[in-house]
């Protein structure tokens, strides 16, 4: 159990910072390089690293499979929901200008939610695929 102590300690140290970096990439993506896709794969890579080092069972405790599998369609629904919100507010599908009184603020709000949907779908899909492959082996 206590072989490979160096990878374990390093992973424990890195884990919160990697997640924090993913959040930074997500929310700072409008100003610098980044966005939903990048943050999504970083979150997924972090969880996969955790699963590789500590085993599948520990990863299942951190991110239970049913949550992951709920998150996959949830992200698409958020994305589509933004589009429908634009429809309800009187614009076209995926029209962000109508989401706020000020068109520019509406754009920012729309982009934020769309990116959130992308983040959720991408990260959870990658983790779910990893779970599927890793769970197959036993």
């Amino acid at each position: 159990m206590h072989r490979e102590s160096i990878p374990r300690v390093v992973t424990k140290l890195l884990f919160p910072f990697l997640l924090l970096f993913a959040l930074y990439v997500q929310f700072h993506g409008e100003l610098g390089a980044g966005g939903g896709f990048q943050a999504g794969v970083i979150v997924a890579a972090t969880l996969i690293l955790f699963g590789l080092i500590f085993g599948l069972r520990a990863a299942h405790l951190v991110a239970p499979p049913w949550i992951i599998e709920t998150m996959i369609p949830l992200g698409v629904l958020i994305y589509g929901g933004v589009g429908v919100a634009g429809l309800l507010a009187g614009g076209n599908f995926l029209d962000y200008f109508v989401l706020d009184h000020d068109p520019v603020h509406g754009q920012e709000r729309g982009i934020f939610w769309v990116e959130a949907g992308v983040l959720i779908t991408v990260s959870s899909t990658m983790v779910a695929i990893y779970y599927a492959f890793a769970g197959r082996g036993r």
Binding site: F37, M126, I129, R136
Partner: peptide, 20 residues
Amino acid sequence: MLTAIVVGVATLALGLAITV
């Protein structure tokens, strides 16, 4: 290309699943 990369890994995973 950003979207293509992410879609690419999804399709790669699908191909690997079929291989398995």
